[in-house]
Computed example of a mutant assay.
Amino acid sequence: MRAIDFYKAFKANTKEDTVVEGRTLFDIYKKDAEFTPVVTKIIEKIIQEAGYTSQREYFRIDVIGWVSRYEDMKADAEAEGLKVRAHLWNLKIAVEHENSKSDWSDEVMKLIHVKCPLKVIIGYSYSNERGEIERKKLDFVAKWMQEIDALNKGMDEQYLIILGNGCNSEDGSSDYTDFGYVGYLYNWVEKRFKRIGDE
Results as ranks from 00 to 15, higher is better:
1 M>Y: 05
1 M>D: 03
38 V>F: 02
118 L>K: 09
142 A>K: 01
11 K>M: 11
67 V>R: 15
127 S>V: 10
88 L>V: 11
35 F>C: 01
29 Y>M: 00
131 G>D: 12
1 M>C: 03
104 W>L: 01
99 N>I: 09
131 G>L: 06
175 D>C: 07
113 H>Y: 11
173 S>K: 15
64 I>Q: 12
153 K>M: 13
97 H>A: 09
16 E>F: 00
161 I>N: 05
37 P>D: 00
44 E>A: 03
59 F>G: 08
144 W>R: 03
137 K>I: 10
11 K>D: 02
100 S>V: 02
197 G>C: 06
156 D>Q: 13
161 I>A: 06
187 N>Y: 02
139 D>R: 11
93 I>V: 15
145 M>F: 01
29 Y>T: 00
48 Q>K: 13
196 I>D: 06
180 G>I: 07
154 G>F: 12
36 T>W: 00
156 D>Y: 09
120 V>N: 02
117 P>R: 09
57 E>K: 07
163 L>P: 09
34 E>K: 11
159 Y>C: 00
119 K>P: 06
78 E>D: 15
97 H>M: 04
118 L>T: 14
64 I>G: 11
179 F>E: 04
16 E>Y: 00
111 L>Q: 13
174 S>T: 13
134 E>W: 03
92 K>P: 05
29 Y>I: 00
100 S>Q: 08
83 K>F: 13
178 D>L: 06
111 L>N: 09
142 A>N: 02
77 A>C: 13
161 I>S: 05
187 N>R: 03
55 Q>H: 13
25 L>P: 00
79 A>M: 14
118 L>Y: 07
89 W>H: 14
157 E>M: 05
138 L>N: 04
47 I>H: 08
196 I>Q: 08
156 D>W: 11
105 S>R: 09
122 I>W: 05
58 Y>N: 12
135 R>E: 14
34 E>M: 04
94 A>R: 11
65 G>H: 11
124 Y>H: 10
82 L>N: 12
167 C>M: 04
97 H>Y: 14
181 Y>T: 07
199 E>I: 11
139 D>L: 13
57 E>F: 06
34 E>F: 04
145 M>H: 01
170 E>H: 10
159 Y>P: 02
4 I>K: 12
57 E>N: 10
40 T>K: 09
124 Y>N: 06
